[in-house]
Design a protein around this nucleic acid. Structure first.
Length: 431
RNA sequence: GCGAGCGUGGCCAAGUGGUUAAGGCAGUGGAUUGUGAUUCCACCAUUCGCGGGUUCAAGUCCCGUCGUUCGCCCCA
């Protein structure tokens, strides 16, 4: 080879695939606008301390997956591995809390984790996310989850399941952690190696180990739900109530423990059986302590993040992305006609039509073949004869019908032309 | 970071040590000097991810390396 390749775990999204991305982005943008969520764009790299403090030193994301480097000013800098910490930082720094009320935010963009790539997992990947800051109302949890569900459903994804759990507040978890460690310690030697390691560092993660022996041991472990305070229990009940009010189905999973330390109370994951080991399409929950932990005022919050590459894998399995057909393909032959075609294409675009100009200069037969494949609704033909007469032929590609127009006359009534295109398009989609 | 599989043109591939690396799709030019299909012809990899080794001989065997796929870990 010798030529430079994209780095491991990164990939190009080529024009054919971009149709899916634009489809998803458009749907998300509309959905968020309807629910009064505003877009926020934060930097792709941040102070390393933001993630260390926000996500938690003991997590795998911080411990072994961050792209961290020292910049020329000797600052420890990290490519964001997720965006909740960044959004919270922006919320605090820009005084959004002081504006009062509830902030509903969404974002979309690349995240970076140094991991072994696999289907549905890359080193640079894109997440779409929603965050509601400033509400401790359990309906906020319901709203945010419904938004994710509606978006996925609107894209035609129906074979998804959602797991739900409450991980309680900080003191609930501390009490549970103690009980869990007490239960697991006698079995220490029977746990898988990773779980043994986690016994001190992050024991809750042992709950969703995939190791069979560990699973057997964990099956009889004390349940987190038994350690929830009455307040936490009530809150979780009300979250579930709001989900059933919204007709959202879910499965209670007492083992669901998410890998980022900031989660409190609600935790959920939306999964697909069609993604192999990377089943989670969307994950999130409540993080009532994070804003304060990062130096802001005590602020309850709830949100989620969706893995767009995983979403694309699912959508590709369902069929092609919807695309609107192109209006005109312009073919020409002869110097004078070619010049006129160039001007014609521009005039069409200025009237709001889409027009692709054939630049090949090859035989008409070849140009028509390309017109056919371009997906255009109609073809405009300018040859030597038309150049002299200042006319053009308009050919409807699906019916083959063709008519002659004066070059100036074609655009005299754009509304009528637009209507004709619409009719031809409708006929195309019927066929 | 660990374990296993795979790497032949833009894409899909045949090839399992012996002279010139099948075939299909796509592409380009032509048969058709002004009309999309079909058909036909021509062109399209001095080289099999990369580097080294074994051999008279390597796409084919060995080692390394890079990439990729699947699983673990973890997550979106």
């Amino acid at each position: 080879m010798g030529s430079i390749q994209s780095l491991k775990g990164t990939r190009d999204i080529l024009p054919d695939e971009v149709a899916y991305w634009q489809w998803v982005e458009g749907a998300a943008r509309r959905q968020f606008a309807q629910a009064a969520y505003q877009e926020i764009r934060t930097p792709i790299f941040e102070d390393t301390a933001l993630f260390a403090r926000g996500i938690g030193e003991a997590t795998d994301v911080v411990g072994k997956e961050m792209y961290t480097f020292t910049d020329k000013g000797n600052r420890s800098t990290t490519l964001r591995p997720e965006n909740t910490a960044g959004v919270v930082r922006a919320y605090i720094q820009n005084g959004l809390a002081a504006k009062g009320g509830i902030q509903r935010l969404w974002y979309s963009g690349p995240m970076f984790r140094y991991e072994q790539p696999q289907g549905g997992r890359q080193r640079q990947f894109n997440q779409l996310g929603a965050e509601v800051l400033g509400s401790k109302d359990p309906r906020a949890d319901g709203e945010v989850i419904a938004l994710a569900q509606d978006l996925l459903q609107g894209l035609g994804l129906v074979n998804l399941t959602m797991d739900l759990n409450s991980v309680g507040d900080r003191s609930d978890r501390a009490a549970y952690r103690e009980a869990l460690v007490a239960y697991l310690t006698p079995y220490k030697d029977d746990l898988d190696a990773d779980s043994q390691d986690r016994l001190n560092r992050n024991p809750l993660r042992i709950l969703d180990s995939k190791d069979r022996r560990t699973q057997e041991i964990v099956a009889a472990a004390p349940n987190l739900s038994a350690y929830l305070s009455p307040e936490s229990k009530t809150f979780f009940d009300r979250v579930q109530q709001s989900l059933s009010d919204l007709n959202i189905s879910y499965r209670l999973n007492p083992r669901l423990v998410r890998g980022l330390d900031y989660y409190t109370h609600t935790a959920f994951e939306i999964q697909s059986a069609d993604l192999g080991a990377q089943a989670t399409v969307c994950g999130g929950g409540r993080y009532d302590g994070l804003v304060e932990q990062l130096g802001g005022p005590a602020t309850p919050a709830v949100g989620w993040a969706m893995g767009l590459e995983r979403l694309m894998l699912l959508l590709k399995g369902l069929g092609p992305a919807p695309q609107s057909a192109f209006d005109f393909y312009v073919v020409s032959r002869g110097e004078a006609a070619q010049a006129q075609a160039l001007k014609l294409a521009q005039a069409l675009r200025r009237q709001g039509f889409s027009a692709e100009l054939d630049l090949s200069g090859s035989a008409f037969a070849k140009q028509f073949k390309r017109a056919d494949r371009s997906g255009a609704v109609a073809c405009l033909i300018l040859g030597e004869d038309e150049a002299i007469a200042q006319t053009l032929q308009l050919k409807w590609l699906s019916s083959g019908q063709q008519a002659s127009y004066g070059q100036a006359a074609l655009l005299q009534d754009p509304a009528a032309l637009r209507q004709q295109l619409q009719q031809a398009r409708a006929a195309m989609s019927e066929a």
